[in-house]
């Protein structure tokens, strides 16, 4: 039985950054991992080499619900074509994937640690 066929007329992507992928064609496994330190500072200070990944958010396991039901999938591709006339993406970032074509297994994981540094406030209540 034919597997699915994806046909895209126009694909326009402006930015493809930070280890992200544009895949045109079939694949078997898609596996991507992203970890980021998101630091927001009230003033523009750049110390060069700073930051580490020793925070618990980068180590803790992400619990994924187990598949317990026994599902038998019977798939019939009577007309296997997927037609898309135009795809327009402005940004593809942080280990993301634009995939045109079929695949079997997809596993994507992202871990972000947010840090906010604000200036001291003068207490105005006098």
């Amino acid at each position: 039985m034919l597997s699915r066929l994806s046909s895209v007329q126009h694909l326009r992507v402006n930015i493809n950054s930070f280890s992200s992928v544009i895949e045109i064609g079939d694949s078997t496994f898609v596996n991507s991992f992203s970890r980021a330190l998101a630091v927001q500072r009230e003033e523009e200070f750049f110390y060069g080499s700073e930051g580490n990944y020793n925070y618990p958010v980068f180590k803790e396991p992400i619990r994924i619900p187990p598949l317990i039901e026994n599902v038998r999938i019977n798939r019939q591709n009577i007309n296997p074509v997927i037609n898309v006339s135009c795809i327009r993406v402005i940004g593809n970032a942080a280990a993301s994937v634009i995939h045109i074509g079929s695949t079997c297994h997809i596993h994507l994981e992202s871990r972000i640690k947010h840090i906010r540094q604000l200036r001291e406030r003068e207490n105005t209540q006098t």
């Binding site: 597997s3 699915r4 994806s6 895209v8 992200s20 079939d26 898609v30 991507s32 991992f33 992203s34 980021a36 998101a38 925070y55 618990p56 958010v57 803790e60 992400i62 994924i64 997927i82 037609n83 898309v84 006339s85 135009c86 795809i87 327009r88 993406v89 402005i90 940004g91 593809n92 970032a93 942080a94 280990a95 993301s96 994937v97 634009i98 995939h99 045109i100 074509g101 079929s102 695949t103 079997c104 297994h105 997809i106 596993h107 994507l108 994981e109 992202s110 871990r111 972000i112 640690k113 947010h114």
Partner: peptide, 30 residues
């Protein structure tokens, strides 16, 4: 499908035009 317009595909997310068997997307932040 006519047109797909997406502003951003970020932090391990995916646009898939096609078929698949299993999809596992996980994200954590603190």
């Amino acid at each position: 499908v006519g047109t797909i317009k997406v502003t951003g595909v970020a932090s391990s997310s995916m646009i898939l035009v096609g078929d698949t068997e299993t999809i596992q997307l996980s994200s954590t932040f603190d």
